[in-house]
Design a protein around this nucleic acid. Structure first.
Length: 871
DNA sequence: TGAGTCACG
DNA sequence: ACGTACGTGACTCAA
């Protein structure tokens, strides 16, 4: 190969992008950038481009795009390319980024008003042939471009997605169709093209077209001899559609002399721009490409400067504007030990692993995960006062889709930070590295925190979320830290007692089940259970899962009347659940102080709720008496105090009443009516509350739940065990009687489709990248989410506000009462007996006044010597 | 590690 | 026709 060889690569960008989109369409949900943008077309386009560049090794490259709907062809024939389905939004939004990608790769792209990509390509290919290029390669998803093939020009057409290409040369075209390239255009004139809406000649398809062309040489040849043809329907059609045939030829012919303002010299390919491409890959979340890029260039990682502090802190090492961050190896900050810490700003970064120094730290006002840091310091006996900024929480508010690790924040804003796994290892291999590596990693983390504060704040400002961070999440982190540090006393003795009883019951049930089954098997294995029930015993299969028979509760409940074993299994499952998760599980979480210290995860849920882990104290049994007994183990701090449990009544429906403004729902709440009874009256047309039966109320309650979740007839019918049709009638009547609820749902979905997100009363945001998805079920899910998230999220916000206000009131009044738990709409406090009366008033009032809505908030309270008794 | 199941709001 | 209620976490089994 000589270096002087000139090779031009011309790509039909519009057609390749479209093919690329559908090539990975089934996996569209896997290709989502951090911003929520779909990237399937960008990704597939990138792959195709890489393959072609590798194969062709071009000296010059251009990607041509169609400029718009109207072209000189639509002037000739208004219906040209008419009747095409609207391009999907998920596709259109990717186009600008494909162009951005080309720019980063150092590839020119071009479009020309009134012309299609084909014409640009045809014109440049012709120019290149004349000006001494050695080889020209055209790539498209559109077979029409094969008309451009010559001795020097080959045309590559994508087949099946964009990974494989079919190479058209004049010889190949002849071999395949028996036609020359000129005849190929004439063939299209005769056949027409459904996708471009080119009419052609009636009833002439590929076979007839080829036959005619082989016989007469060309379209002109055909029409020169049309009068000599023997009478036939074909002859008649040819004559009738003569004008149309020639018009079709004109439409199908690529313009080889279009007025392009770009020259061959402009298409010189210099290779990609490393920094731009890197930034682009990050923006798209293309981690593999990023690694390859960085690996390929063997980029030297820039050194980072920091000062190691072994002992003696001085005041001049600290000021408020710095960040401060403590490192542990795992997630469990109640048990894991500090392995190092770092603080500093853009001028100076400090690192240390001398934990003894922490008592002399003058804490800066910025951190990452305040709550974790506060708990870790509290374990050293150090108080960490609330800060001004927490990068973890800021990132969570900005976007809930990804996790909120420092490395994720680095990625998001184009900075480098190795993942913790790379430095510390994972699983059994996780360990503290040697000092040099640890310190370097800590310094890099701090550096990222310093550099990303401003961009994070900018994002929050853009989204009007500064108050949400400053007035809710940050102060809440402090409240939660205190709750976690306090912990809740749990009696191991009570749990063990329940455990012993359960053991006996399980033992008995196991024997009975083996007896009824005729053999022993693992009752905990859905697979083995399925074999026993559905194969050995021949019970009817009601539902299947991906892997086999479903043995879920609703299925077993339906089977119960048919075989006595089923009830035993249900009972076994119930007790076994209590035993493993709540007896054994909780016993293992009681720490040496006799308490359980859960972790509230503040940066996880898509709606703004908290979650609780290690252990989860937000799902302690309550509905069934056997499980509810577990709550007898949850105790107040000492003999002289009680647990006070306060929960919002119907907070989600009240929020819905407020944001929808529905007058009927609002007045029901204002009148203090039982909301499900009230719904039953309106929907079922019952005049007096006393005429509402228990069943009516139950049905109305299910409808109310459904409304909050983004109702569907299927979901409701499933829940109520009624027909889909009956469920639909319920829903229709409901919407008729509560028109503003219907309107809220329509409005919020429409707004989500426009903006791509929904938000709560306090501007907490949830991005909904799937809201305009093509796939019905993917889209429907996003629509229900759009309805539910502002409701669930606003309710979560309100309880957070209440907790913050209550914390302040407790401090202001110097009370000894302490918040212990939060369960989504409930707060549990430890209250000394002598404060009970005042707390009953204070907690209720604080929760009810957390926010002023167009309906009152109502709080129910209970107290007792255990959590079981406080209900 | 993913699927199935089930505990909570 | 499509195939579902919204949000979580822990445990067990079976690869």
């Amino acid at each position: 190969m000589t270096t002087t060889e000139k090779k031009l690569l011309l790509i039909d960008g519009s057609s390749i992008a479209f093919r690329a989109f559908f090539a990975l369409y089934t996996q569209i949900d896997r290709f989502v950038a951090p911003s929520g943008l779909h990237t399937n077309a960008i990704f597939a386009f990138h792959t195709m481009l890489g393959n072609v560049l590798e194969a062709v090794q071009p000296t010059h490259v251009l990607v041509a795009f169609d400029a718009g709907k109207t072209t000189f062809r639509t002037e000739m024939y208004a219906e040209y390319k008419g009747g095409r389905a609207k391009t999907p939004d998920e596709f259109r939004e990717q186009m600008p980024f494909i162009k951005e990608m080309l720019e980063a790769q150092g590839i020119r792209h071009y479009e020309l008003v009134n012309y299609e990509a084909d014409d640009i390509i045809g014109t440049l290919a012709t120019q290149a042939e004349k000006s001494g290029f050695d080889k020209i390669t055209v790539v498209s998803g559109d077979r029409d471009l094969t008309q451009l093939t010559t001795e020097k020009t080959t045309v590559e057409i994508t087949i099946k997605g964009v990974a494989e290409l079919e190479t058209y040369t004049p010889a190949y075209l002849y071999e395949k169709l028996g036609l020359t390239t000129e005849q190929f255009i004439d063939l299209k004139a005769l056949m027409g093209d459904k996708s471009d809406n080119i009419p052609g000649v009636t009833k002439v398809g590929e076979k007839t077209g080829i036959k005619l062309l082989l016989e007469h040489g060309s379209l002109d040849g055909i029409y020169d001899h049309v009068d000599d043809m023997k009478t036939s329907k074909l002859k008649e059609n040819l004559i009738n559609d003569r004008e149309q045939a020639f018009l079709s030829r004109e439409l199908a012919t690529i313009d080889l002399d279009s007025p392009i303002e770009i020259s061959l010299a402009d298409t010189l390919y210099a290779g990609s721009d490393y920094d731009k491409l890197k930034a682009f890959y990050k923006e798209m979340g293309f981690h593999k490409f990023l690694e390859n890029l960085e690996g390929a260039t063997e980029k030297v990682v820039e050194a980072i400067e920091f000062k190691i502090v072994a002992e003696n802190l001085s005041d001049d090492m600290f000021h408020d504007d710095q960040f401060f961050y403590l490192e542990i190896l795992g997630e469990d900050y109640h048990r894991d030990n500090i392995i190092g810490f770092t603080w500093g700003d853009e001028k100076q970064i400090y690192v240390s692993k001398n934990v003894a120094l922490l008592s002399d730290v003058r804490f800066p006002k910025n951190t990452f995960d305040f709550k974790k840091n506060k708990v870790l310091l509290a374990r050293q006996g150090i108080n960490y006062p609330v800060v001004d900024f927490d990068s973890m929480l800021a990132k969570y508010l900005y976007s809930t889709i990804e996790n909120n690790k420092i490395s994720t924040i680095a990625d998001l804003f184009g900075f480098e930070l190795p993942d913790d796994e790379l430095i510390y290892g994972k699983g059994a291999k996780r360990a503290v590295p040697e000092d040099a590596i640890l310190f370097d990693h800590l310094a890099r983390k701090l550096d990222v925190l310093v550099k990303t504060k401003t961009p994070l704040l900018d994002k929050l400002r853009e989204n009007d979320q500064e108050d949400l961070l400053d007035r809710i999440e940050l102060p809440l982190a402090d409240v939660l830290a205190k709750m976690e540090i306090t912990g809740i006393k749990v009696s191991g003795g009570v749990l063990s007692e329940i455990g012993l009883e359960n053991e006996q019951v399980l033992k008995g049930l196991t024997e009975e089940i083996y007896e009824l089954a005729g053999e022993p098997f693992n009752i905990n294995s859905p697979k083995q259970l399925g074999v026993i029930l559905f194969e050995k015993m021949g019970l009817p299969v009601i539902k299947k899962t991906k892997t086999g028979y479903s043995t879920a509760v609703d299925v077993l409940e339906q089977l119960a009347p048919q075989a006595p074993i089923v009830d035993k299994i249900l009972k076994y499952r119930q007790i076994s659940k209590i035993q493993s998760t709540y007896v054994t599980g909780l016993l293992g979480e009681i720490m040496s102080d006799g308490k359980i210290h859960t972790r509230y995860v503040q940066d996880l849920t898509q709606t703004g709720r908290l979650s609780s882990v290690q252990p989860n104290l937000q799902n302690i049994p309550v509905r069934l008496p056997e499980g509810r007994k577990i709550r007898k183990a949850f105790l107040p701090e000492n003999e002289d105090s009680v647990l006070l449990s306060s929960d919002y009544s119907q907070i989600e429906l009240r929020v819905l009443a407020h944001i929808s403004g529905d007058e009927h729902l609002i007045s029901a709440f204002n009148e203090g009516a039982d909301i499900h009874t009230s719904t039953a009256m309106r929907v079922f047309g019952i005049d007096k509350p006393e005429d509402v039966t228990a069943n009516d109320r139950r049905n109305a309650k299910a409808v109310n739940f459904g409304v909050v979740y983004g109702i569907s007839d299927f979901g409701l019918s499933n829940n109520l065990g009624i027909s889909r049709k009956a469920a639909k009638t319920y829903i229709d009547t409901y919407f008729e009687r509560y028109p503003d609820i219907k309107k809220y749902m329509e409005d919020i979905v429409r707004s989500a489709k426009d903006t791509g997100f929904v938000e709560t009363l306090y501007h907490r945001r949830r991005n909904l990248p799937d809201i305009n998805a093509r796939n019905f079920s993917v889209r429907s899910f996003a629509e229900r989410t759009a309805i539910n998230s502002p409701i669930q999220g606003s309710a979560a916000d309100i309880l957070k506000v209440a907790m913050i206000n209550l914390d302040r009131a407790l401090i202001a009044g110097q009370y000894k009462s302490k918040m212990l738990l939060q369960v989504h709409d409930e707060i549990v406090l430890d209250v000394p007996n002598d404060e009970l009366a005042v707390m009953q008033t204070l907690v209720k009032k604080t929760m009810e006044e957390a926010i002023s809505l167009s309906v009152p908030l109502l709080v129910d309270e209970n107290n007792g010597k255990t959590w079981y008794d406080a209900k």
